[in-house]
Design a binder for these strands. Structure first.
Lengths: 242, 242
DNA sequence: ATTGGCACAATGGTCTGACCAATTTCGAGG
DNA sequence: CCTCGAAATTGGTCAGACCATTGTGCCAAT
């Protein structure tokens, strides 16, 4: 009988979110778009601004929406009425150990995403990834070093083509949480430099639709990042990263 | 210069949550315990009840806390100051597609955990896993079928020995969210039956400290589960699982 | 024509005080 | 001792106000 628990958890807030989700769907709002003012919503929905704010706060906590004071509230992810939220929360400090652990998770997901990508990528998807790769390589040669933004775009493309949005969601969330350290974590010069060649080899395996090969290349790629990280940690012993 | 963006995202709410997290830690509150009244918090922290409520609403949305009108606000999970939130959103509800997507995530994590486990397991850890394997196999032969509980224990042991708590935490959270469907998802008889032999082969690779071998066996194991799932979905077309 | 600064409007963030609704507590009455 | 109901407690909602930040557009100086 556990399936019919709590018949009325809360009314107003949920109702507001449902209506708002429908509004987003009907209006075809995309991530980045601005949604109506709190005051407008409160008036239209015939509820107080307090209630609207509580509802939006819930969405904000789930990362679906972003508020900018003086500007407005903006969509951060696609929302619809039939959504299922799985908020994971775990204890994890910003120390070297935690960073290493998240990197192990990333390695796991990166490898699987690469394998799926190699399986599922059609000509159009391959061209999409190719484009990101070209930009990255050009930037690399122009600045004689990895550009974290173009690099990130390349990986995002792979997650996207994998056909499973969860890969991008999980890794993006981690990326965001650690973005200060993920990029140039420990003051290592040319961080990520060693990973450069594996981007192309990974791309080649994807083009060949070689799932296991792609998995292997992705593992090698992440391995170089982990090495960089370990080197950095060794450099400054007892680094206080927070 | 991307490291110094957003100097003041929001003050009060976050501050409240930090203080509250510290309070929970110091007071040693456990899930199920009741935390102070909104009015008390608002008075103690010198902020309005509105602000306290916004903060608690955020926690409620993350499933950390449960509010009961007329009774109080209760802890639902362990909280601490250094928490890492990873809100995942599934496009659609509890349908076949979503289940398959989470299974792909599980495959990724399972493979990596197995590889790490093979690398890091000492004699004591191997004995620990062996114990779970024995229990599972015994149960299998006794009941002529997979016992989901003992099976789960075996996998939990591997996550644990992997040395990275994130594996167990992420997979457990997904497992919990889908537990009704994860076990006997689509009325398939002998669900998971095909996966049985791979538990021992996986164990053997771990004993041999063969990381890549363990990864391969874990992949095969999950592949059988996916096959079962696909078979089940084919059986009852247009299954309405919700 | 461009640029810089400034006032004003719009918007999210916070506060106050009040009332409503569900729950718990506890005393009166059996 | 038990039962029932009133009162206190607590989360949920509301209205209205003010603050802090951001965006916009006008105007003057260059």
């Amino acid at each position: 009988m556990s399936t019919l628990q709590s018949i009325r958890p809360t009314a107003r807030d949920d109702a507001v979110l449902n209506v708002l989700a429908d509004f987003v769907t009907v209006e075809g709002l995309q991530p980045g778009d601005r949604l109506p003012t709190e005051r407008v919503l409160s008036e239209r929905l015939k509820v107080s601004r307090t209630t609207v704010r509580e509802a939006l706060t819930r969405w904000e906590g789930l990362g679906l929406v972003e508020r900018r004071q003086g500007s407005g509230t903006y969509l951060k992810a696609a929302v619809s009425r039939d959504m299922f939220h799985l908020p994971l929360t775990f204890a994890s400090g910003n120390d070297f150990e935690s960073l290493m652990q998240t990197l192990e998770i990333r390695r796991a997901l990166e490898a699987e995403a690469a394998a799926l990508c190699a399986q599922r990528a059609g000509p159009k998807e391959i061209a999409f990834i190719r484009e990101k790769l070209d930009v990255m390589e050009e930037s690399f040669h122009a600045h004689a070093g990895m550009s974290s933004e173009e690099d990130w775009d390349f990986h995002l493309a792979i997650y996207s083509v994998s056909g499973n949005p969860l890969f991008g969601q999980i890794i993006s969330a981690m990326h965001e949480a650690f973005h200060r350290f993920w990029e140039h974590p420990l003051g290592v010069r040319d961080f990520g430099h060693a990973s450069f060649p594996y981007h192309r080899t990974l791309y080649d395996r994807i083009v060949a639709h070689d799932a296991e090969g792609a998995r292997a290349e992705a593992l090698k790629l992440i391995a170089t990042v982990e090495d960089d990280l370990r080197r950095g940690a060794a450099n400054l012993k007892l680094a206080d990263i927070r």
